[in-house]
């Protein structure tokens, strides 16, 4: 399938600060891309250039086969990081206005808005003024505004920022529906957990430079942790037999139990079954791939993240205490 979005050596500076540096990016049709990096990495600048709100100093970009998003705005959905509404406007009027700007006839826009708002539990908010809605409700309305035109390309800039857990869950479901509809999705976040769950491909940016561009599946393979976390039901149980299982390279004690590091080509599922049979577990799991660990490793290798301590980087990446991570 062809590229929906192509960036070739895109560079953008603000005064002395180089916000985006020689960025190359190909987004394939129908895929879900995660643009991740800490706050200030340049994600929003990249998105604003894609949307032709800002223009690159150097390089070129193609959006849906056009030289500029200005020529294809009707086919793009965009949820900016800094989003607002006309507070005095009614929800239906606001959505119809945004839809009108994107070339959607009023009647069709209202039909789709009604359907989406019902889906989001806001059916009775259609005739309300925006100022009468709660922040969470407004965020859902804003998301509806971004997909009212059934876009081919959906760009979401920090879509979960400031959302309560319930809203995050609803939004994730809606994004999944857009994926199923066939929309290409590019979303930026500094919360890696969201990217892990939703994205097929990850693009990492640090200080304006791309440090990673790989499919999630490949990342899982390349950065497979090969670790099993084990927590016994009986806190006093002797865990030492687990370290002697074939294929276990090392056992590390943790507060709740232990972590088993596995050798290459060992069946993790078999180890987990054997461990559960040997000692009654309270919890047993395969350690998940953590994008933030990958990011820290890449930045350290790149040598450009040294001004910031690892702990500071982790704090950025986790969104200051896992902001908005859904249950």
């Amino acid at each position: 399938m062809g590229a929906v979005l192509e960036l070739e050596g895109v560079t953008k500076s603000f005064g002395e600060v180089r916000a985006v540096d020689e960025l190359h990016l190909d987004v394939r049709r129908g895929a879900t891309y995660g643009l991740i990096g800490p706050s200030g990495a340049g994600k929003t600048t990249v998105i604003r250039m894609i949307m032709s709100i800002l223009f690159p100093d150097r390089g070129s970009l193609t959006v849906l086969g056009r030289r500029s998003a200005l020529e294809a705005k009707d086919r793009i959905g965009y949820l900016p990081e800094e989003r607002g509404v006309y507070r005095k406007m009614r929800v239906d009027a606001f959505l119809a206005y945004i839809a009108g700007l994107k070339g959607v006839p009023r009647r069709r826009a209202l039909e789709r808005a009604t359907r989406l708002l019902e889906r989001l539990g806001l059916a009775d908010s259609m005739r309300k003024r925006c100022e009468d809605l709660s922040k969470g409700m407004l965020q859902r309305v804003q998301f509806v505004a971004s997909i009212i035109n059934e876009p081919e390309l959906l760009i979401l800039d920090e879509p979960f920022s400031g959302l309560d857990p319930v809203s995050v869950r609803v939004l994730r479901e809606l994004i999944a529906e857009e994926q199923q509809r066939g929309a290409t999705i590019l979303f930026s976040t500094h919360i890696m957990a969201h990217a892990e769950e939703l994205c097929e491909r990850i693009v990492m940016i640090h200080k304006g430079r791309k440090v990673l561009d790989e499919p999630m599946a490949a990342l899982r393979r390349r950065f497979d942790t090969r670790k099993v976390r084990f927590e016994p039901l009986d806190e006093t149980a002797d865990l030492e037999p687990l370290s002697r299982f074939p294929g276990v390279v090392r056992m590390v004690r943790t507060g709740e139990g232990c972590e088993l590091e596995l050798a290459e080509n060992v069946d993790a599922a078999g180890i987990m079954r054997n461990a559960a049979a040997a000692i009654a577990p309270a919890r047993i799991e395969l350690a998940r791939l953590r994008l933030e660990d990958i990011f820290i490793r890449l930045v350290a290798a790149d040598g450009r993240g040294l001004e910031m301590s690892e702990q500071a980087l982790r704090t950025h990446l986790q969104g200051l205490g896992n902001e908005g991570v859904a249950a």
Binding site: M51, S52, I53, L70, K73, I76, G77, Y78, L79, P80, E81, E82, R83, G84, V85, Y86, R87, I98, L101, K102, Q142, A145, S146
Partner: peptide, 14 residues
């Protein structure tokens, strides 16, 4: 100030 401007810029050019 209400940040609606970037929502508009998603649909229209400046």
């Amino acid at each position: 100030s209400s940040r609606v401007v970037e929502v508009l810029l998603a649909a229209v050019s400046p």
